[in-house]
């Protein structure tokens, strides 16, 4: 495993820890999109089905279990435990416009016309756009808690770091996963606007504000 992949996975774990930590310390899920978290749960379950029939490494299995369980737990926290602070009218992105096209793209572009491969591709497309309800919500409220912005930043950083990892693997291992690269680039582009605003507010010590 190369340094970019390792750093990407660390950023992903850090993002989940920030998310859970901020929910537990503030006892609130204010500003968090339940829809985005449900989409991530769908992403992880559809992508990591191979957990049951293919062993890659202990690291790989452990991380898959961690992502599936932490995403289900997050959905539980938002939907059940702290649901009093949900403002449903703010989190009103139409997720069918993300789920439908992701499934069609997974159906059209895959490495084999089998259910696991279609679901795997679907999960990549869906992951690329799953943050949109959260960003949409941020844009509507205009402001975000510092921890929420750190969470989104770490999450965006994860896929961004996978891009140099794919370059590395292309040259060092002669391995190239065109679907992962394409969806990873789309995902990073979706975050790019956020990265820029985050960069400006984080380095000037200002409260995070979207224009």
């Amino acid at each position: 495993m190369n340094i970019f992949r390792m750093a990407g996975d660390v950023a992903h774990i850090v993002s989940i820890i920030i998310l859970l930590h901020s929910i537990e310390t503030t006892q609130s899920v204010n500003g968090l999109s339940l829809k985005t978290q449900v989409l991530y749960t769908i992403v992880f379950i559809s992508r990591y089905l191979d957990l049951f029939y293919r062993y890659i490494s202990l690291y790989n299995s452990f991380m898959k279990v961690f992502y599936i369980s932490s995403s289900i737990y997050t959905v539980y926290l938002i939907a059940n435990k702290y649901n009093k602070s949900i403002k449903e009218h703010v989190d009103n992105f139409e997720v069918k416009y993300l789920l439908g096209p992701s499934f069609i793209l997974g159906f059209l572009f895959n490495y084999g016309f089998t259910l696991p491969e279609i679901l795997w591709s679907f999960s990549l497309w869906l992951e690329a756009v799953a943050i949109l309800p959260q960003l949409f919500m941020l844009q509507k409220t205009g402001e975000a808690e510092v921890l929420t912005t750190h969470y989104i930043f770490a999450l965006g950083l994860y896929r961004a770091l996978y891009i140099p990892n794919w370059f590395y693997r292309y040259f060092a291992e002669d391995k190239f996963d065109k679907l992962a690269v394409l969806t990873g680039i789309i995902q990073t582009v979706i975050y790019s606007d956020f990265f820029y605003i985050y960069y400006k507010s984080a380095f000037k010590g200002k409260k995070f504000k979207l224009p």
């Binding site: 992949r5 992903h12 992508r47 991380m63 795997w120 990892n165 002669d174 391995k175």
Partner: peptide
Amino acid sequence: ARQATEHDEL
């Protein structure tokens, strides 16, 4: 380059 169908990434 080999096509990556092992899906060893997360």
